[in-house]
């Protein structure tokens, strides 16, 4: 054997390449089954959700881990929004504080209810949990379905496998329509049966 070291090295390189491929971040999706999110408070456009894989290198576990920096929340569920408006009304009704103070309070309180940032409701630890979940192979089985209720139906919008935070109170899924990709967050208090649509951020939109 003239070049045993080279052959051994090549073998190691091959193994490492195969290893890298297996570890490549990947959101998991289920093919060919139509689903629709039916949780309380979720007001979709009544399009049926087609639960099919969409491959996305760009919006993978790395993106999820940094989503608190990147995603702009541009939609908040009606119930949560109304709470925000009520808070602002009560601030405006206060007579004993100055207009400047009112304005500052509205900016801080109103912003969190009406234009929240991801970091307002998800910490780094939870995002890391979600990001690592996106890297795992998961089966879309009945147990998974119970974590975020969907119903089997037919096409139009694709959703990704939902990702959950540490105490299972917040879920994130990606929803891809023909001309839009949105990240949607759902909330559920511990012990509650149903998830409520909380907020969403548009990642891209087309003409």
């Amino acid at each position: 054997m003239r070049y045993p070291n080279i052959i051994f090295l090549s073998f190691l390189v091959l193994l490492s390449l195969l290893g890298c491929k297996a570890q490549k971040p990947n959101l998991n999706y289920m093919n060919e089954i139509g689903y629709k999110v039916i949780n309380e408070g979720y007001t979709g456009n009544n399009d049926t959700i087609y639960f099919k894989a969409f491959t996305s290198r760009q919006y993978d576990s790395t993106y999820i881990a940094e989503i608190d920096d990147l995603l702009v929340i541009d939609g908040v569920g009606r119930n949560y929004r109304e709470i925000g408006y009520k808070k602002i009304d009560s601030i405006n009704a206060l007579s004993e504080i100055s207009d400047t103070r009112k304005s500052n309070l509205i900016d801080s309180i109103g912003r969190i209810d009406l234009t929240p940032k991801v970091r307002d409701f998800l910490g780094k630890k939870d995002l890391n949990i979600m990001a690592s979940m996106a890297n795992r192979k998961m089966k879309w089985d009945q147990q998974s379905l119970n974590r975020l209720k969907v119903t089997k139906d037919k096409k139009s919008v694709k959703i990704s496998f939902p990702l959950f935070n540490g105490d299972n109170t917040i879920a994130l899924l990606f929803e891809e329509g023909q001309n839009v990709l949105t990240a949607k967050f759902f909330k559920k208090r511990v012990g509650d049966e149903k998830w409520k649509f909380y907020c969403s951020g548009t990642i891209w939109r087309a003409d």
Partner: peptide
């Protein structure tokens, strides 16, 4: 939506978002 979240336009957009399910629509 971000800078003038209490404006009528922002409120209307938010309402449309709830109605149509996505911000693009």
């Amino acid at each position: 939506s971000q800078e003038h979240f209490l404006s009528d336009s922002a409120k209307l957009l938010s309402e449309y978002n709830s109605t149509y399910g996505n911000r693009n629509t």
